[in-house]
């Protein structure tokens, strides 16, 4: 089941990147896809995280919101970079997340890191250590909406994963 997901993904990636559809080239494609499958079996990465298609719609709804947040945060950091007086106040805060699954936690931590001005430094259980460029922007309350959206996008809904 998961193997089929990886096979489809690899075949689609080859098709999208090659643009040559002659029989010889398609033969090479089949060989390389099978080789990729053998390698991923050897690495033991064929599991639920290897082909996460069940949550694709949730992620697609989450990405535009994240992009807008990243743009807003970018403006703050760009202004901080170009100020004549280096007016920053770095802070280190602990953020507690409500995400349950590993995928949701990783999504949340990566979203925090992707937003300029905040970097996730350490994850232990459901607590994260976040370093921020401005003390005023890096309070635990400012991550609540991102946390809720990550949990909605990536946590399995009632499914016993």
């Amino acid at each position: 089941m998961y193997l089929v997901g990886i096979l489809l993904a690899a075949a689609a990636f080859w098709m999208a990147n090659s643009g040559h559809y002659k029989p010889l080239m398609l033969g090479f494609a089949a060989v390389s896809v099978v080789l990729t499958l053998i390698l991923s079996l050897r690495f033991k990465i064929v599991d639920r995280e290897g082909s996460p298609y069940a949550r694709l719609l949730g992620f697609l709804a989450y990405v535009p919101w994240l992009a807008w947040e990243v743009l807003k945060a970018n403006w703050v950091v760009i202004r901080a970079c170009l100020r004549a007086d280096l007016d920053i106040s770095p802070a280190l805060v602990k953020v507690r997340t409500t995400c349950k699954s590993d995928l949701a936690k990783v999504t949340f931590a990566n979203s925090i890191t992707l937003t300029p001005g905040t970097v996730t430094v350490e994850i232990q259980g459901d607590k994260m250590l976040v370093h921020g460029l401005y003390e005023a922007n890096t309070v635990p309350e400012s991550f609540i909406s991102m946390d809720a959206r990550c949990a909605r996008a990536a946590d399995p809904r009632g499914a016993a994963s």
Partner: peptide, 9 residues
């Protein structure tokens, strides 16, 4: 750590 923020821009 602050340089990381600038690099992420």
């Amino acid at each position: 750590y602050t340089r990381l923020h600038a690099a992420s821009v």
